[in-house]
Write a protein that binds this DNA or RNA. Structure first.
Length: 566
RNA sequence: GCGUCUGUAGCUCAGUUGGAUAGAGCAACGGCCUUCUAAGCCGUGUGUCCGGGGUUCGAAUCCCUGCAGGCGCGCCA
């Protein structure tokens, strides 16, 4: 049952306010000792023309017989504080977790709705570096969150597989590359060639001309150019699939820029037909003056298409193919203006679904000594970071738990978990300065801490045994502040998922399970969980079980695995 | 210059959409393993919540203004 709603109903009967108005006013007190719900009476003072404390007193007096689930009501200044009956509430919450299992917090609110999520979207022939981590991990988490809420997520890796850089790469390969070196070195070798090209092109401008010519050959379907292009693409995808496997990230589609090559002409024609396309300095643009936005460039003066042209084609294709409820672009905030323009153009074309498109922006990643630059070869490979985290975990396992059964898998889960947790620990919009030492510190609010707490709770259950849980639990054993804090956080978990989905902010889940883990660890130390009292032990173990379940679900929604032992 | 985002403890960040004494983690120092996993727990200290006005019973939160920084502003993506 929904205690908040029940309380609002009760209060609306005692006041002149509706249940909705009460719900809007009701809040959670800052400390556990102040109760579970609070009604600040200050706003009512004006309406009722009485002092807040007086209003609180009046309401308090009218509540003569409390419902069984309410323990007490107290007046504190202008506040009216409500205390739930702890054993009753604990029993109710733990029963619902036990009943729902790993579906606790799930819903069917999104049934029949598709959510298209554009994330990761890597560039072919370029390294998968730390700058790609946010989009990959945020997108993956949203994918899982929406599926959990009953939506059907469609994950799209919008590959950057078009553009003059492929001409450059071919030129570099023809001048300095060897087949075996590239085949073996894959992205590293291609990056070397790319960097070499940029250095050489500074001296010799004819190289740029050559690169443009080779790209033209790709466009024209020249067999040699096409086969090289296909080869670069194949090598890249093979290489990155290993990283995606490590991160446990999957996509439903890899339709990228080249895929939309033959789908732009109809869009251009439609823009023409709707008289939205204007000539400006030889180029074709859609004016957005009335929205205080600069014009959106659709065609270059040489008639070539642009980023926006391709994104328009992609948007129409996605609407037609998936009939999306929302289409999310998990892309860094640099492209803020681009997406505002893109959505406006679609709106001006007369499509109301333009409002269903959202730019889920996130902050930039930089290195301690400056920005990432692929051209300069200033990059940190994601694979190296993941390896470092896994190795660190191996060392810790040897030190702390050398007899662990599946060390490889566990080290992977924890190392990757540390990295993913860090990426999803703060508001998306925050910039991140990449700090390997910080990622490799597994103390405090970290992925390993979550996993450790989960494993610790499971360890208790193994020790207590299944029969311990069969005992009739005595929920009064969960009335202590330590235990009840855990109960409340478990109860608040479904709402955290809702908020995370609503705001496209996975960190709300990260924060919630972090608080849960902290509360559980305090409970664990202050209170003996398994003791001679079988019914109290049963209650405490069911709390441990629910904690493990919620942490596991939360981590799964972030894209982190929860090992059973560590 | 214009637009946009950010500014909270030494560092990284929360802050229930305007509420009760502004909270966590890291880093530092001290304590706790013959008892349920010490990747843990407890304790110690620090704040002009960027500055200045305003609205309000009440402001880190809302409005105005200034400052600092990031990002963006036509033929790259």
């Amino acid at each position: 049952m929904d205690y908040k709603k029940e309380l609002c109903q009760l209060l609306s009967e005692k006041t002149s306010l509706s249940a909705d108005e009460i719900e809007h006013l009701l809040e959670t007190p800052p400390a556990l000792e102040m109760g579970d719900f609070a009604l600040p009476c200050f706003k009512l003072a004006r309406i009722l023309r009485k002092a807040p404390a007086r209003i609180a007193e009046n309401i308090h007096a009218s509540l003569n017989d409390l419902p069984h689930w309410l323990d007490k009501v107290q007046i504190a200044g202008g506040y009216l504080n409500f205390y739930l009956d702890r054993p009753h509430y604990a029993k109710d919450m733990l029963s619902s977790v036990a009943a729902a299992g790993e579906r606790y917090g799930a819903s069917q609110e999104g049934a029949g709705r598709n959510i298209v999520i554009d994330y990761s979207s890597i560039n072919i022939a370029k390294p998968f570096h730390i700058g790609h981590l946010s989009t990959t991990v945020i997108g993956n988490s949203l994918y899982k969150i929406f599926n959990f809420l009953g939506y059907h997520s469609v994950g799209i890796n919008h590959l950057g597989d078009w553009g003059t850089q492929f001409g450059k790469l071919i030129v570099a390969y023809k001048h300095w590359g060897k087949h075996d070196t590239v085949e073996k070195g894959s992205i590293h070798a291609m990056l070397d060639l790319y960097v070499k090209f940029h250095h050489a092109a500074k001296e010799d401008v004819s190289l740029d001309e050559e690169a443009r010519a080779w790209f033209k050959k790709i466009e024209d379907g020249d067999p040699e150019a096409l086969s090289l292009f296909a080869w670069f693409k194949e090598l890249t995808l093979k290489k990155v699939s290993r990283i995606y496997d490590l991160l446990d990230v999957k996509f439903d589609s890899y339709a990228g820029e080249s895929f939309y090559n033959d789908k732009m002409q109809p869009v251009i024609e439609e823009l023409e037909a709707k008289h939205l396309l204007e000539e400006s300095n030889g180029a074709k643009v859609v004016r957005l003056d009335e929205y205080d936005l600069p014009p959106c460039l659709i065609l270059k003066s040489d008639g070539a298409t642009l980023y926006a042209t391709r994104d328009l084609a992609a948007a129409f294709y996605r609407k037609k193919t998936y009939d999306f409820y929302k289409c999310l672009y998990v892309v860094a905030y640099q492209q803020n203006l681009h997406f505002r323009q893109l959505f406006k153009v679609i709106e001006r074309m007369g499509y109301p679904w333009a409002k269903d498109m959202e730019h889920v922006a996130f902050g930039m990643v930089s290195m301690a000594d400056g920005t990432i630059s692929t051209r300069e070869g200033r990059v940190i490979f994601l694979e190296d970071v993941i390896q470092a985290a896994i190795e660190k975990t191996h060392r810790l396992i040897e030190e702390k738990n050398p007899d662990l059964a599946n060390k490889e898998e566990t080290a992977r889960d924890i190392g990757v978990g540390a990295l993913v947790y860090k990426t999803l620990s703060a508001n998306r919009i925050k910039d991140i300065v990449f700090d390997l030492d910080r990622i490799l510190n597994f103390d405090g609010e970290t992925g390993p801490y979550m996993q450790y707490t989960h494993a610790r709770a499971l360890s208790l259950l193994r020790r207590g045994g299944e029969e311990a849980l069969k005992e009739e639990p005595d929920y009064t054993a969960l009335s202590s502040p330590q235990a009840f804090s855990v109960v409340r956080l478990i109860a608040g978990f479904p709402e955290a998922i809702q908020k995370a989905a609503e705001k496209y902010e996975p960190y709300l889940i990260t924060r919630h399970i972090t608080e849960l883990a902290q509360a559980f660890n305090k409970f664990y130390y202050d209170i003996r969980i398994i003791d001679e009292n079988a019914s109290a032990t049963a209650a405490r173990l069911s709390l441990a079980k629910a904690t493990a379940t919620v942490i596991k679900i939360g981590l799964a929604l972030l894209g982190i695995r929860a090992p059973e032992r560590m």
